[in-house]
Amino acid sequence: MSLRYLASRLTQGIIVLWIAFTLSFFLLYLLPGDPVITMLGAGGELQNFDPAEVERLRSEFNLDQPLPVQYLLALVAVLRLDFGTSIQTGTPVTEAIASSLPSTIGLAAVALVIALVTGAAIAIGATLTRRPWLRDALAALPGLGVALPTFWVGLMLLQVFSFRFPIFPAIGTGTPTAVILPAVTLAIPLSAIIAQILFRALQNAWIQPYVTTYTASGYSRLRLLLRQALPVAVLPALTMSGVLFGQVLAGSVVVENVFSRQGLGRLAQTAVTGQDIPLVQGIVLFAAAVFVLVNLATDLIYPVLDPRLKAATRNVPADATRTDHEGVRA
């Protein structure tokens, strides 16, 4: 892996973050009229604003400055990781995000573990089984998983496992068992996505000629799957990890609402409800940064795992550069 590759990936990520900032800036601060009125309006008193308060907010957000100056001031502030302060609580946005993060990370970690295990089990089971009905049933599960509304699944689980059979607490973050139901709720769409991607990748690997080669060399089905198909199939699945993390963040908004948990999702919801523009922008940029970082990590790991990419970036022995496409005959 060359330094140039690393640098180009890094630059791309930074450009994405910069555009994300620019877009969110223009969307939130410029689009629908006066953001100060919007923010105050959400506070409750719709009619009479205190003109002094309006002016104070105006200058706090530099809205009294010309547009390019506003933008540059905001950009410089963001570069110093200063996303402003929350309108509702007055705490700095970075602080608000940081304090809500641990709870969401805990939830996401449990959910990801559940999702990886069930997702992989479904995909591998569906590929491995010789029984058509079982394969069809397993292959249909992910489709079901992505179609169920998360908020509804959470409520159904609550209804059954907290009210009908009080096994788990209905709300809160107090006991360790309290994380189970929300994590399962969050894990259902995640595992469905993992199962879908992995199953498709395994199917694709399974019909490759090399599987025939090794089948004919006496390999068992299980060995073929685990040692030959899976190492190839996890590669495309890996590229989806950025999307997966985004899914976790989006899911946490709904799940934390349903189970009345504190966390980033909850923070996002209250920010939108209160039209807390700095907080919303901070969360959006945070999500974009997570996505960029995860993708960057994937990009760096990928060539290590896939020799085909490595070969493409490094010098290949001269005799291997020839292709044989011209002589292909039926």
Partner: peptide
């Protein structure tokens, strides 16, 4: 960029605006 922000969060940002 649009893809980097989870769909639901992106929608929520638009709704805020």
């Amino acid at each position: 960029v649009l893809q980097a922000i989870p769909g639901l969060l992106l929608s929520m940002a638009v709704i805020t605006a």
